[in-house]
Write a protein that binds this DNA or RNA. Sequence first.
DNA 1: TTACATTTGACAATTATTGTCAAGTTAATA
DNA 2: TATTAACTTGACAATAATTGTCAAATGTAA
Lengths: 100, 100
Amino acid sequence: MKTTGKIIREKREKKGLLLRHISAELDIDTAILSKIERGERKATREQITKLADILELDKESLLIQYLSEKILYEIQDEDLGIQALKVAEKTIKYGVSKNK
Amino acid sequence: MKTTGKIIREKREKKGLLLRHISAELDIDTAILSKIERGERKATREQITKLADILELDKESLLIQYLSEKILYEIQDEDLGIQALKVAEKTIKYGVSKNK
DNA sequence: TTACATTTGACAATTATTGTCAAGTTAATA
DNA sequence: TATTAACTTGACAATAATTGTCAAATGTAA
């Protein structure tokens, strides 16, 4: 499975950068970045965009992956998750004016 | 637009029940229920299932609606929201083992 | 074994969510 | 119009979730 964390770790290692290099730029402890890369913690949206910049990853792709994980997190262990996803998709396509 | 709040309010009024009747059962202030019905606040998952019981609403349908709103809330004002939804859907269908 | 990178887990700080309360509207009607 | 009951509003308190630090533990290579 491709995950946000794995994408980040892979690219970081490919670039020969250490946790402390990146975490310094993000202004967080290495412990958190370690956890983010291993999927033990979620990054913030801001961290994702910074990481894309620092690691020269495609920002849109990374954000899509990140957001999809946030969505999945919301419906984890919900039997009706898939159906909720479909309703959400229809709603967003339909036109999101919640008036009336 | 059909929303969780509107479904609840409509059914409550159809039953001739007052905010204070329902909010007492939910053990919250009427102010919150009022806000939930008007979409100013989100309900908790527990409140949704209780509301379905109290108002004799179909629990699954109400939960699907509720969850879809939670999802949409996550991606509100995200340009890449729709794409994230699609990725989430694929992931969930594919098989959600995040191993390897 | 020393040195350095990473991981782990307890817990602190911060932020978001959920709630109360009291005062303000609204609408029906005495 | 004055009263009353239902609902709404907004300030703020309580609680819960998230995000962070730190120090010690683990792994790994020289």
